[in-house]
Every structure is written in C-alpha cells, then in structure tokens.
Write a protein that binds this DNA or RNA. Structure first.
Length: 425
RNA sequence: GGAGAGGUGGCAGAGUGGUAAUGCAGCGGGUUGCUAACCCGUCUACCCGAUAGGGUAGCGGGGGUUCGAAUCCCCCCCUCUCCGCCA
C-alpha cells in the first residue's frame, strides 16, 4: 500500500515503478483524488471548528439560565453543511484507498527489468547436478513404485492435487520439517511459532492477498480463510503495534500446512505432488528497521540456501525480474532446486523484501530512538523451505537404480538413523 | 450453543449528557556539590501553514439521537466467568 504523501512528493518515482510492473502511470489520478479528499477534509474541519465553538456557547448560556434557541438554530445549519463535506471527504478517501490497495509494490532499484520469468537473473549456483548410471525417474514414479505415495487414495478422499504419503515418505516429510525448524531456530536465531492457520480478512489484507487475490484462497463457511502461507499469520503478528528499536529485528519461523486453490494453474504440473492444494512449508519472517531490510533479505536467502546445502542438493539463486515478482514484494530471490527426474530447476523457495508495503497495510510501526512519532516497519518473508518440494528433490536426487532412495545425512537423525528407504520402509 | 460481566493513554484507574480526573512508570528540560525530592513538558493520525504555529479526530469498531456523546440507542468485534458440548 502506497503512502499518498509519498506519491505527492515523488509522482515520477511512483509512475516509474508502475511502468516497471507493466502498468500505466497513475500518479495524475491519485493526485486528483488526493486533492479532492484534502479539500473536503479541510473545509469539513473548519465547519466543525465553528460548530464546536457554538455548542460551547449553548452550554454556557444554559448554565446561566439564558435562552439558547438562536444559537441552536445557527448550529443546525452548520450541521448539514458539515455532514455534506464530511461525506464528500469520506467518499474521496475511500476511492483513493480502493485505488491504492490494488497497486503492487514498487520494484527496488536493482531489480532487473522484465516481463516474466524469462527475464529473471541467475545470481549464483551451488553444487552440481548428480549423474546417474540409469535414467532418473520422477518423484511420483519413485514414490508410487515404493507404494508410499498414493494419488488414487487422495483422489478418492479429496480429488485432484492431493496426495497420501505413507510409511517412510510420511516420516521423511516430518523429518524434513523438523530438520528445517531446528536449523532456523538453533543456528539462525528464529523463534518457532505455532500460529492459527485460519485467519480473518484483515490478516490477508495486511499481507496483500486481499482484496485482489481472493480466488487463490479457500474460505470457510463462517468466513475464515485457510492460509496460503504462514507468511500471513507470522507477518501479521506485528499488525497494529508500535515496537521499539530494541525489539528489532523480529525473526520468526513456523511449519504449517498451506492451502491454495491454484485457480490460475489449471492443467499445469498435474502429475505428482509438485503443485498441490495442500502442502506444508517452513516459513521465515523477519520484521526489521528500514535500513536493515536489504541486508536481511541476503541473510534470509542464506538461511534458506543452507537447508539445501545441508541436504546436499544442487540449486541456483534467481533474482526475479520486475514482471515476475509477487504483489507485495519490492525484491525477490527464488531458490530453484535441481530435479533430475524432471531434468529441470524448480522453485523451492521464494524470499522477498516487502519494504513498508505490508507494514503500511497492517499498520505495523516502530518508534525510532530519540525521535518523536513513529515509522512503518519493513517486512520480509521466505520459504525455508517448501517441505513437499524438498521431499520431491530428495527423492529424485538420491534415487538408486533399484528404486530405493538414500537418506541425506542431515535427515538421518530424524529418521532413526535410516540410510536408505525402499519399498519395505 | 445458553446465561452473565467487561473493553478508557505504556500501566493502574475515575468519569451516566457540557467537550477525558488522578496515580505510577518511561523520556526530555529546569532547579541542584552529587543523588533524591521538587517543578515544567511529554499520546497518535490527519488537515492548513515556508516557519512559528493553528485546527480536526480518536475512550474496542461502525452507525444513530442531540446544539453538544466516553456517557443514551442500534449493529459488530474482542476478552473473561458459569453451564452445555468437546480434542
């Protein structure tokens, strides 16, 4: 959400950001609405000031036992005028807000120009793609052959884009989540949180999913929403609050199920468990001072990368182009893990700095040391990592010719020391 | 689900129609050998203004009544207690 005052002072920067997002310049429209709003507000306040003064006179007159009918009649006229002006101000204010809340965040200066993922920039790689003496299989072939990944059962229960994991694979999914949480809490200073996964409208508005992306979400009959990511409850932890500098940075992590309707992805990635309506994910969220958020994004990306390194998985880090970034982000790193079965890199983490875009929507502020007033916080979020996709990556990268799968060393302590899982796991 | 109580500044706590007491804490300033005590100031958002400064709003949220609402009326949210149900 943009600050109208910032747009007033930097209309060109505002328009440039929209253009980089593939939108039209809109500052003229915003400024016109803003002007209407302020004029109505100023006039309404002047009338109100008169009203207040006259009302005081009524009180004073009555206290003295005098007749106040004349003053009361005078105030009555002001009342209608005030109502009219206030209404005009409110209408303009709501129009401005409705306009602004649908606009995506301005890309950071170092975000590459581009229309879509084809313009993303590879920043670095780590490790090498493993070589196989045989034709590597895709994760669902491995899992189904093991008898531990059951799409038919899931389909009977819930339909397409669900999976039932059994035995060693269910165990490995749990191991992955536990391993990631331990890494982030013990080594990177994140505090583990167990948040609600049903949330209200306001929480989703705060992080930017609403009002624009309601189609991507699941809603309950009593008007809760299932979270599409733990970014929503974790970031909204600071909604409506004023922190002091000594509280910052706030670093929190959570392992939660995530629910997405995948409304725009019909027909894409239909085989396997790459794109599901429900998946679990370890999320990282940082809340920090404005001048720390650039460094925090690098740090957070490093935390997510470390998961892949410990799992011994080959990946690359992409800097998303202006056209491929999410609504609330001002800069995003994607981690893409190598999947031998697919012979492709696939997204397994996305780490974004949102600047004050979300903080403004949810009114999360801090009080600068030695300064009067408050400023909005900066928020960041990142997957650390998507657990379902991490399971896929382990299966495809650690597969053996006989259909068994080696367990990465980092995971073995979480799986009773098992080094290999196979059909009898 | 039923019945009831409540929501006022960082905290505590008054205020049932006349425009938010008071106490404590924090911060800034004054006074002052030092400390303590004491005195003054110190909320947030927005609007007008070059500045100084001025104004409007805010007592959980939103409407309404009234010249005037923390106070009266309506709707909603949240917290707590008891009962019922329940992992």
């Amino acid at each position: 959400m943009f600050d109208p005052r910032w747009i007033r002072e930097n209309p060109d920067a505002f328009d440039a950001g929209l253009v980089r997002r593939g939108l039209e310049p809109l500052s003229a429209q915003v400024l016109a609405l803003d002007k209407t709003r302020r004029e109505a507000q100023t006039q309404a306040q002047e009338v109100q000031s008169q009203r207040n003064a006259l009302s005081k006179q009524v009180g004073a007159a009555k206290a003295k036992g005098e007749d106040a009918a004349e003053i009361i009649a005078e105030v009555g006229a002001l009342k209608d005028e005030h109502a009219r002006l206030e209404e005009a101000g409110k209408t303009a204010d709501q129009a401005l807000k409705a306009f602004l809340e649908g606009l995506p965040n301005t890309p950071a200066a170092d975000v590459p120009e581009g229309a879509d993922e084809a313009d993303n920039l590879e920043i670095r790689q780590h490790g090498h793609a493993p070589t196989f003496e045989f034709e590597p299989k895709q994760h669902f072939e491995i899992g189904e052959a093991m008898g531990r990944m059951d799409f038919e059962a899931a389909s009977r229960l819930s339909g397409a884009r669900f999976v039932v994991l059994r035995g060693a694979l269910a165990r490995m999914e749990r191991a992955l989540g536990a391993f990631m949480l331990d890494l982030h809490t013990k080594e990177f200073g994140y505090t583990e949180v167990s948040p609600p996964i049903l949330v209200r409208d306001t929480a989703l508005y705060g992080t930017g999913q609403l009002p624009k992306f309601a189609d991507d979400l699941y809603r309950t009959e009593d008007d809760y929403w299932l979270i599409p990511t733990a970014e929503v409850p974790l970031t909204n932890l600071v909604a409506g609050s004023v922190l002091s500098e000594s509280d910052l940075p706030v670093r929190v992590t959570a392992l939660t199920p995530c629910f997405r309707s995948e409304a725009g992805a019909a027909g894409r990635d239909t085989r396997g468990m790459l794109r599901q309506h429900q998946f679990s994910k370890v999320e990282l969220v940082s809340i920090c001072l404005p001048d720390q958020s650039d460094a925090e994004l690098e740090r957070m990306t490093g935390c997510a990368e470390e998961v892949l390194r410990r799992l011994g998985l080959h990946y690359r880090v992409m800097l998303l182009s202006s056209g491929d970034m999410g609504f609330s982000a001002r800069k995003t790193h994607d981690l893409e893990v190598w999947l031998p079965g697919q012979d492709a890199y696939r997204e397994i983490s996305s780490c974004s700095s949102c600047g004050d875009f979300q903080a403004r929507r949810m009114d999360g502020r801090y009080r600068p040391d030695g300064e009067k007033g408050t400023r909005h916080l900066h928020t960041l979020n990142g997957s650390g990592l998507a657990v379902g996709r991490a399971l896929i990556a382990v299966l495809e990268n650690y597969q053996n010719a006989d259909g068994s799968v080696r367990v990465p060393e980092a995971l073995q302590p979480y799986m009773d020391g098992a080094e290999v899982i196979g059909g009898d796991g």
